[in-house]
Design a protein around this nucleic acid. Structure first.
Length: 487
RNA sequence: GCGGAAAUAGCUCAGUUGGCAGAGCAUCAGUUUCCCAAACUGAAGGCCGCGGGUUCGAAUCCCGUUUUCCGCUCCA
């Protein structure tokens, strides 16, 4: 990675904070690691990206509907999904080799080198300690048996720690004697809220396969290492769509959505050369095919969105754990047999995009420090956010050239006629040039200026962010022109 | 989690034999100018990240801690 790009990333972060896009969480208390708040313009931009995605999924697809599931879910959900079992193992690090081991794997590997009787005794001790989460006892067991790291050959271990990516909290106001009883998780992904509602949605919205369920919402992961600004946060927002298909057709739908999702990014005006696919070679246990859509951030190509062919894994698991059928009766005629396809558990193709990552991709692509030659030969600089107009936080700034001569009154009238249509910003302080540059810095695509000529012929100057050019326009054409530019 | 670096006004930073906390820009009030950030006057803004220690005295030296960035590690 070039140093320039690294500097650019720093600049984007600094700009995001200075101009009210993203702040560190609870900053007056020194912040909270890997948690961020969205400021005035950041929350507008984030909302605009979310709305654009939501509309493209639901309003523009007759066979996709939305839901808004709760963050809290029945704890068994996460047993069924595999999140509880796969991500709560106690781990230990060797300080010399920096290698991290699962404690049970480490001890089991050592047991294999022992005689049958000694091995059995060791494993019995391990199981007893594991069952009561006695980490100090487990570490003592490792030390007493002089278990060494295979790489460094030393017994220089850290304390044993439990890594669990899921946040837990207490459910209900009364503490239970048995600690686990009232425990719920904050969802580590939004997908399960869709799967458990599969039949509710299918029946009430009378959906026929193939169909999709879309959802946006917060998810929480207690990442071991969460860094790189809003790229990896402990609390983040996903935009997900689970598409339910007849088994056997998942391959073609996977291809369809892989292509369609990249097209969505490009439709925002993001440049094609900054995107690429990354096909997964190593697949998760449930996946048939999977790929990421990667975007070239200043820190390199990174995942923005994932497209996964998840088979019937999730619905089947919920069937198993809930003992409720999650099947669909398909009335379409199977040409091979001449009969309906009948009952089956649908297969799922998932598209899952990180809203915060999308936000970061838009912001880092939009950010530009320009050098502008001046007439006298010197040069000037401006910082501009070339945010696509349709998702820009502020669409139009309305600026009276001076504070006198009735110009603010005319500008206020225009403001009133526009602010119901799109987000407008009114300002009369400072010179017109400064106000233009401030609007550039938050990515406002259009500014209009009310000047003395306005009083004579009812025209205003409209100035474009990207080209810095301007032209005259009758006041009564302003709304229509802006609406056209932000489509 | 390990290793490295950093933290002083909203921003960018200056501030060493340890001795009164500073500049530019930005902000706010007013004046002036007015079509691309650069005029004038005034004001506000700081437990020098936080907590200890050394010292007559600490932004400065020492220890700890938090946060951020970089490399490694992890990432269903």
């Amino acid at each position: 990675m070039a140093t320039n790009d690294n500097n650019k990333f720093q600049a984007v972060i600094a700009h995001a904070k200075e101009y009210g896009f993203v702040f560190p969480s609870s900053e007056i208390y020194d912040g909270l690691s890997a948690v961020y708040d969205y400021g005035p313009w950041g929350s507008e931009l984030k909302k605009n990206i979310r709305d654009y995605w939501w509309k493209s999924m639901t309003q523009l697809h007759e066979n996709i509907v939305g839901i808004d599931a709760a963050i809290f879910m029945h704890p068994t959900t996460w047993k069924a999904s595999g999140h509880v079992d796969n991500f709560s193992d106690p781990m230990i690090d060797n300080k010399d080799s920096k290698k991290r081991y699962r404690v049970d794997h480490l001890i089991e590997a050592h047991a294999e080198t022992l005689s049958g009787e000694a091995a059995a005794a060791l494993l019995a001790s391990m199981d007893r300690l594991l069952s009561v989460d006695d980490f100090a006892g487990l570490k003592k067991l490792i030390e007493d048996n002089k278990i060494k790291c295979a790489i460094s050959g030393t017994g220089n271990w850290t304390d044993i720690r439990q890594f669990n990516l899921m946040f837990k909290t207490e459910f209900g106001a009364v503490a239970s004697e048995n600690e686990g009883d009232n425990m719920v998780y904050l969802r580590p992904e939004t997908a399960q809220g869709i799967f458990v509602n599969f039949l509710n949605v299918q029946k009430t919205a009378r959906m026929k396969i193939p169909f999709g369920i879309a959802q946006t919402g917060k998810a929480f992961r207690n990442e071991i290492v969460a860094r790189q600004f809003i790229f990896r946060m402990r609390e983040f927002e996903q935009m997900e769509m689970q598409f339910f298909v007849r088994p056997g057709t998942e391959g073609e739908w996977y291809k369809y959505w892989k292509q369609a999702r990249l097209q969505w990014h490009l439709s925002l005006g993001m440049p094609a050369e900054k995107y690429r696919y990354h096909d997964h070679v190593k697949l998760a246990h449930y996946a048939k095919e999977a790929c990421d859509i990667e975007f070239e951030f200043p820190i390199g190509f990174k995942e923005v969105e994932g497209i996964h062919s998840r088979s019937d894994y999730d619905l089947s698991q919920h069937q198993l754990y809930s003992k409720k059928k999650l099947q669909y009766y398909d009335n379409d005629i199977d040409e091979a047999t001449g009969k309906p396809y009948g009952n089956y558990v649908p297969y799922v193709v998932e598209t899952s995009i990180g809203l915060d990552r999308m936000f970061l991709s838009v912001l880092s692509h939009a950010y530009e420090e320009e050098t502008i030659p001046r007439e006298d030969g010197s040069s000037d600089s401006r910082t501009v956010l070339r945010i696509p107009a349709k998702i820009a936080p502020v669409k139009l700034a309305i600026l009276p050239l001076t504070k006198k001569d009735g110009l603010p009154e005319i500008a206020r009238d225009i403001m009133r006629s526009c602010q119901d249509e799109f987000y407008c910003f009114y300002e009369e302080k400072d010179t017109i040039g400064k106000r233009y540059r401030r609007m550039d810095a938050i990515g406002t695509p259009l500014c209009i200026t009310v000047d003395h000529q306005t009083k004579e012929d009812n025209t205003v100057t409209i100035r474009y962010r990207d080209t810095m050019t301007q032209e005259r326009l009758p006041i009564d054409k302003v709304v229509a022109l802006v609406k056209e530019k932000i489509r």
